[in-house]
Amino acid sequence: MSAAIAVRGAVKTYGDVRALGGVDLEIQPGEFFGLLGPNGAGKTTLISALAGLVRLSEGRIAVMGLDVVDDYRVARRMLGVVPQELVFDPFFTVREMLRLQSGYFGLGRNDDWIDELLANLDLTRKADANMRQLSGGMKRRVLVAQALVHRPPVIVLDEPTAGVDVELRQGLWAFVRKLNEQGHTIVLTTHYLEEAQTLCNRIAMLKAGRVVALDDTANLLRAVDGHTLRVKVEGVLPADLGGAPPERDGDWWVFSSEDYGQLAERLVRLRSAGVQISEFEVGQPDLEKVFVDVMRRAG
């Protein structure tokens, strides 16, 4: 079976600026894939090249085995892109936009699916409203609907929750998760790393146009020393509790470890040493720490 997305040696230069410096990436069908990186890392350039909005200087990209340049007609039918910018056409209503977008994909009668999309994205009441009358969140939902009118197997969401309220964000993720469960491949770029951590089963991190990390989300999280036990104690902390000494953070003592077992052992030792613990917190490793570590190591 062809990869949902296969990127081979993707290079994009703008004059002296190298936006993509030789990206190789393969995303399998059904994955929920995160594409992360700081501003200017090349995420949007890569997505634009995938969508045919940008032409690579070198390299090739295929969607479901179809080259995005040579087989662009079929490749674009396989792909739905939710752009980062909140763009809309002020001349049309929501339903008109979705009908037109269906037409661009050669779909004449698509109202049943359009109705389903409107219902799933809570847009039914706004179907006949002009795009200008919608709030930012509503416009964002329409962008999602537009990307899905032709039922693409691969869906790319370029920072879809930027500036979106919590309710819409949760509704959007529930819908996207459902699509993923139905077999759609999802590629997500976001600056909200907790979203990527929760949703994506695999993540690539880009910096300066190169992939600097690519692994399962769980493996990336395991690679950092991210489990922490924070305790507030009455009195003095005994000198020897085994393992690495804790760090001081205001009134708190912070023990770090690669796994919870070692931290549980520290807790037992504290209790056996008769230390009175007034408060404690357990912290999990998070993608933000991984991201910061990876970016620092990448130089």
């Binding site: 674009r76 792909l79 809309f88 661009y104 050669g106």
Partner: peptide
């Protein structure tokens, strides 16, 4: 207008030649 508002992307993303 489509270029400045950015909605030209709706056409460019499609299989229209």
């Amino acid at each position: 207008q489509s270029k400045i508002t950015g909605n030209i992307v709706f056409v460019l993303l499609t299989p229209i030649s």
